[in-house]
Simulated assay, not measured.
Amino acid sequence: MKLKEIAHSRTGDKGDIINISVIAFDEKNYSILQEQVTVTKVKKFLGETVQGEIRRYEVPTLGAMNFVMQKALRGGVTRSLRLDRHGKTLSSILLEMPIGDTNN
């Protein structure tokens, strides 16, 4: 299954940092997010898009996690040569990540 089947996201970007919140549609799926949406898996899935550190902050009362990604915009939104590769686009990409019984 893909992440988008059990979660949605909200995003923001500032300078060269993107934050992506992943929020379970149903609180019963939060444990799946905790287990399957790790920093290692997110970093691997997004590949070279994120050049810096990724930190995951858990917000169990909301059934959510917030990923803060450093060096993700090649200098910032206003300096990036990437067309539309900012917070909202990256959250859509992240929601395509396979979760469950996969090798990813």
Rank of each mutant, 00 (worst) to 15 (best):
D84S: 13
R79I: 10
V39D: 07
F67R: 08
V50Q: 04
V39L: 04
P98C: 00
D26N: 10
G47I: 06
I23W: 05
T78V: 14
M1C: 03
N29Q: 10
K28N: 14
I20M: 00
L46N: 11
V59L: 05
M97H: 02
F67K: 11
R10Q: 04
L90H: 05
V42K: 10
I17T: 12
M65K: 02
I23A: 00
V37D: 05
V22R: 07
P60F: 08
H8I: 03
Q36E: 13
I23Q: 02
G75E: 10
N19F: 14
V42E: 08
H8Q: 01
V37T: 03
N66Q: 08
E5I: 06
D26T: 01
I93T: 13
E35S: 13
Y57P: 03
E96L: 01
R82Q: 07
K71N: 15
K14M: 14
D16V: 11
R56S: 09
D101V: 14
F25H: 13
Y57G: 00
L94K: 11
R82V: 02
K28S: 10
S9I: 08
V50M: 10
D84M: 10
G100Y: 11
Q34V: 01
A72M: 08
S31W: 00
P98Y: 01
V68Q: 09
Q51M: 12
D26H: 07
L83R: 12
T40Q: 14
R82I: 04
V50Y: 02
K14Y: 08
I93D: 05
I54M: 11
L33F: 08
Y57L: 13
L90W: 05
H8S: 06
Q34A: 02
T49L: 15
V42H: 08
E58N: 15
T38D: 05
F25Q: 07
E58Q: 14
A64G: 09
T78P: 06
G100P: 08
D16W: 08
S31N: 01
R79G: 07
F25M: 04
T61K: 09
T49H: 14
R74Q: 10
H86K: 05
L33R: 11
H86P: 13
G63V: 11
G76F: 03
E35F: 04
N29E: 12
